[in-house]
Simulated scan of single mutants.
Amino acid sequence: MAKKVLIIGAGGVGQVVTHKCAQAPEVFGEIILASRTEEKCRRIAAQINRPIRTARVNADNVSELVTLISREKPDLVINVALPYQDLPIMDACLETKTNYLDTANYEPKDTAKFEYKWQWAYHEKFAERGIMALLGSGFDPGVTNVFTAYLAKHYFDEITELDIVDVNGGNHGQAFATNFNPEINIREVTAPCRHWESDSFVETPAMSENRSFTCPEDVGTYSIYRMYHEELESLVKHYPSLKKAQFWMSFSENYLKHLEVLQNVGMTRIDPVLYNGMEIVPLQFLKAVLPEPSSLGPLTQGRTCIGNIVTGKKNGKEKRTYIYNICDHQDAYREVGSQAISYTTGVPAMIGAKMMLTQTWMKPGVWNMEQFDPDPFMADLNQYGLPWKIQDPAELG
């Protein structure tokens, strides 16, 4: 029986999620798209050849959220708004007894620190209400968690090392732009790096460790930089055999040069400064003058390559395996009007929602992706636009 879903957030990812949900009417019988700016929702709805209702809501305001959710009575809320808004939306879901899904963990506005402790603290509350929250159903986090679970289930008896590698081989031709929300992107990149080693997190300066990485299928060779990403926190918790876990992302010299200058002149600060008698946050002002990520869709050429290199043991022998997805920016744009960064986040959000609505993954409480059977999710990645491959260990070098 088809269900009703409320999507909150009308940025690039919200656009992809709405398109992909609309492609599965047997699961998503009714779709409501809500945002602080309803006109954005209407523009997305106009792209889709089935009725999509829209609404206005301030996702920082729990009472507004409760009013909307109570009126619409969705079976699930898909949160693709800002990470700052995770907790207000979870509070509204608790009050209305509604299932919840997001793509990124909570991050306080005034501190560039993202971790799961705030959301994990909701586990008992959600369980008592008989509702489920699925955290981080994007690509990284999300698919990378499921990739880990899939390899742990089918390819290893024990996993000991994990490297998540996120390469964007796309080129949008702009002097400086971010492929998703600039405020979130820059906060992530400039935060101190943390990686897991010898049973604890080790902190190092941001972007201080880099190496060269050659992607399969002629995507290219890129400089990748070690940084902290939230899936490490949940993966080392749920796979205690991991001795080392790292996250790597590619950046061009041009991006890093611009970012260094912006940092040096204070434009990446998240604390308010006084200007003409008004308080402004430099990073929020920078976001306003940079290209809107959704505008990059028609401009971006090239492919992304995101995957996991896992080391461990099978039948007593050391083994190393690489599992990955490659996504073409222009293919994504032709299908849903967004580039591959939004596509690779939005498709897993839809699949996670499908897992919940079909009761494939459904358990009261707050859960991470790797805590469920990976097989049905992996099958849907192949069906809905993010096919994956496993590289022969001999090719890894």
Rank of each mutant, 00 (worst) to 15 (best):
S200A: 12
C215W: 06
S198P: 00
A191F: 02
S208K: 11
Y225L: 04
P182H: 07
M227S: 04
S212C: 04
Y239M: 06
S212W: 06
L134T: 03
A206P: 01
E203N: 08
G130Y: 05
V165F: 07
N185Y: 12
S234P: 00
H154L: 13
H172F: 04
W196N: 08
Y150C: 03
A152N: 01
T144H: 04
H229D: 09
A175V: 14
R129L: 03
I184N: 12
R187A: 12
D199M: 11
I224F: 11
R211D: 07
P182K: 13
F176G: 05
S200C: 13
E188F: 15
P192M: 00
D166H: 15
V236F: 13
D140H: 11
T148F: 01
Y228W: 08
Y150E: 05
F139C: 06
T204Q: 09
N185I: 01
V236E: 12
E188H: 14
V146W: 00
G138L: 00
M132K: 01
R129T: 02
L135V: 13
H172T: 07
S234Y: 00
G142T: 03
F147L: 06
R187W: 13
T144W: 01
S212K: 15
A152G: 00
Y239A: 02
E188G: 13
S212Y: 03
G169Y: 04
S234I: 06
F176I: 11
N185A: 14
V236P: 07
G173K: 14
N168W: 09
M207D: 05
I224H: 09
N168I: 10
E161H: 15
V146T: 07
L151M: 14
D199Q: 15
N179V: 14
L134Y: 02
T178M: 14
F213C: 12
V167H: 10
R194W: 11
N185T: 14
S200D: 11
E233Q: 15
V165Q: 03
L134W: 02
H238I: 13
I224R: 05
Y228E: 07
E183N: 12
Q174F: 10
D218W: 04
E188L: 15
L151S: 04
A206G: 00
D166I: 11
S212F: 09
